[in-house]
């Protein structure tokens, strides 16, 4: 009699718990399949842009500069020109200057030279000398700040020339407006991993996925019990 009651009880709760856990199990299964094939799906190299996927993550301010018609900014290690990735450039992005057709960008240890939006070359700033801390232009000449002195620059020999007066308006990277913000740091891999673990929904999400795991465990035990009690 007791066993019969227990079997009915387990039957009822087996179905209820199964339905309750189903939503989470579907989510965890799909994300698990995606994570198993991260490489093939290239999840680590692609970045969602919709707020539907990005709302749990605090917005990262992109520091950048507006140089004439161009917007140059850094996200992670990469430098972007008008949302197009240029090259990895060790942060921070220090400054940029447009001179005739050429756009010069200075990062911590690298100088990028572009012409008409095309990357011409990347130069190690240490070749100009140690302690290059800024770049600007004045009177049609490109200038680099070494220590406390501004110097002219000969781009053929790649050497600093004579000391020059400090330029009047030296730009500094600013936080860009929202419409220029682009996600280049939260990859699909992170989003899928966080969905899989429940962290996407905050701390409570982790407990919900934990609960679903416990329910699955109970389902397998109650399923066994129901199956074997019928055999008897």
């Amino acid at each position: 009699m007791f066993k019969r009651k227990l079997r009915f009880f387990l039957h009822r709760w087996h179905r209820r718990l199964g339905l309750t856990a189903a939503v989470i199990v579907v989510l965890v299964s799909i994300t698990g399949l995606m994570l198993n094939h991260t490489g093939q799906l290239e999840l680590a190299k692609q970045y969602p842009q919709s707020n539907l996927w990005l709302w749990p993550y605090p917005a990262e301010a992109n520091l950048g500069l507006k140089v004439e018609d161009n917007v140059i900014y850094q996200a992670g290690d990469a430098v972007y020109l008008n949302k197009q990735p240029l090259l990895n450039c060790e942060p921070p992005l220090i400054n940029a200057a447009q001179l005739n057709e050429q756009l010069w960008i200075l990062c911590k240890q690298q100088i990028l030279l572009l012409a008409n939006g095309q990357l011409i070359e990347s130069i190690d700033s240490q070749l100009l000398g140690n302690d290059i801390t800024n770049l600007s232009h004045a009177n049609g000449s490109l200038l680099f700040l070494q220590g406390n002195t501004w110097f002219g620059f000969d781009d053929i020999s790649m050497m600093l020339t004579q000391a020059m007066p400090a330029p009047k308006n030296i730009s500094t990277p600013q936080v860009l407006e929202n419409h220029l913000q682009t996600n280049h740091t939260i990859s699909w891999q992170k989003v899928v991993l966080d969905l899989h673990s429940g962290r996407f929904f905050g701390e409570i999400g982790v407990y919900i996925v934990d609960a679903a795991a416990v329910i699955l465990l109970l389902l397998s035990l109650s399923g066994f019990w129901i199956w074997f009690s019928r055999l008897k």
């Binding site: 090259l87 030279l113 095309q118 990357l119 011409i120 070359e121 990347s122 130069i123 190690d124 070749l127 790649m158």
Partner: peptide, 20 residues
């Protein structure tokens, strides 16, 4: 290759490159 221009140093038949 990232770029279309490569710098090199040439002296007495020897060449030097700095490449990433």
């Amino acid at each position: 290759y990232a770029g279309i221009r490569i710098r090199y140093w040439q002296d007495q038949g020897r060449l030097g490159f700095i490449l990433n």
